[in-house]
Design a binder for these strands. Structure first.
Lengths: 258, 258
DNA sequence: CAACTTCTGTGCGATTTCGCACACAAGATT
DNA sequence: AATCTTGTGTGCGAAATCGCACAGAAGTTG
């Protein structure tokens, strides 16, 4: 296969929504980072030096219990960014961030973002709105964990994921999904089987294809809809006033693997 | 019983931590609001015109499902404030806020807070830190809902609540706790019985007394500790530089009951 | 004090999820 | 082709929780 073209920074909606002057200040410091499946972006206790803006990748944020059990509480794709806590307090969070769908992200040094943040312009404004959408997603996860079946939660999870991609395929095993939802792998198998029998998805060895998105929505709990609606209300990144960027000139960085 | 003295604004740690000049600008607009048990502070779809700073009350924030089931995702006491979403986006959230422990709160018109917020001073700084602590609490609730027993969650809930009061008594029925945790009333009864038999709490008809706080902590899941640690790290409201305020001059407001 | 409402205790079968064990299937390795 | 690793399907008893029904206890009201 030949070399694929680099993704453009503007593919990340958050970056795209920044004012041209902000973009002009920040974009010279951009680095492109390929994100292989399952690489570890952040772990509790470590220091994060960059803020990441996914273009065609998905990062999920999970909390890990002392006994190793985990739950994903948030999915970040090209609608947002990873690392708002760096702006809010400078402190890390007691969480872990893992690449859930391989792809790329642009990143900026936390210092540069912080500088721009302190100008109290569009970046601050967008960050606040994104934070509220984030809180909604986390809160709805809490509710969902309490009240809904594995079947419903699987639907929600699949929808949240494909919403953040330009295709309908997901690279994740049932074991992985189990970790994300905080349930047994067998439980995911049962739920996935039902979906496959209904022709909603098909899958094999870690590759899931969504065949009937509409049906998936009807089978999902209301949680997905609530989050989606709130997100769309809070993040209407409408007029993309783009700064022309020479993508080729942006350096590419390799992340260390776990 | 004779009239009790008004609580002081500085009893709210957030207000107390503001710089004197900020306090001087804001405090003239303060109103004192008595918060009767179970009064409704906010409901999804309504407009909030004030930001509330509890002094000796607790407000809990819950999400309601279409079928009426609910889960509390956040507890707000004198360490924080209700209404950050007004600052973050101006939009409401799909949640409901209820007074969980009667008492008082000071409130400020959203416009005044927003004005001060836009000065990008201490208020903004504190608000960001508080928001991060809030996210941690919500996220930990999500994890807890997934992985821990009713017994453990009851302990967590009791601890979060009494931490925000100056005494060790809680006014809530088991039915109410059930609504907050999103579990059946009978489940709460079972869990509460165990605690009472171990001498950790005593209760009768909606009045719970915490007798052995230490034991309660050991019986709780790790979620409580994580939230507490993060909160203390993020909100070290250290030097209280107080503006002398004439409490008597602050107007008192009555909230409409549900 | 009688009637009523509210809160708490208890029992039981249904349901969901868990934990574990194991079989099988599809790629990957040699 | 033979073997190994990884991912998926299945069966079972155990545990937690649910939904419901009802009884009794503690206040409240008339």
């Amino acid at each position: 296969m030949s070399k694929k073209p680099k993704p453009h920074p503007q593919q990340n909606h958050f970056l795209a929504a920044l004012d041209p002057d902000v973009q002009e200040r920040l974009f010279p410091h951009l680095e492109l980072v390929p994100l292989p499946l399952r690489s570890l972006m952040y772990e509790s206790g470590r220091t994060m030096r960059h803020v990441y803006f996914p273009t065609d990748s998905i990062i999920s944020l999970q909390y890990i219990m002392e006994n190793g059990a985990s739950t994903a509480i948030l999915v970040v794709g090209n609608e947002g960014l990873l690392g708002i806590s760096l702006l809010m307090s400078g402190q890390g969070t007691p969480s872990r961030s893992v690449v859930q769908s391989a792809g790329h992200a642009y990143r900026l040094p936390r210092v540069k973002v912080k500088e721009e943040f302190n100008r109290h312009g569009k970046l601050l404004l967008l960050m606040l709105r994104y934070t509220q959408a984030l809180i909604t997603q986390v809160a709805q996860t809490a509710v969902c964990n309490r009240h809904h079946s594995i079947d419903q939660q699987l639907c929600r999870w699949l929808l949240l994921s494909i919403d953040r991609l330009s295709h309908n395929q997901l690279n994740m095993t049932q074991e992985f999904i189990g970790n994300m939802l905080g349930v047994r792998r067998e439980g995911v198998t049962q739920a996935a089987l039902k979906l496959q029998q209904q022709g909603v998805i098909s899958y094999s060895r870690g590759l899931i294809k969504v065949l009937d998105r509409d049906k998936l929505e009807t089978l999902s709990c209301e949680c997905y809809g609530v989050v989606k609606k709130e997100t769309e209300m809070l993040l209407p990144y409408l007029p993309k006033r783009q700064v022309i960027t020479d993508v080729a000139a942006i350096p590419v960085v390799k992340l260390p693997t776990v």
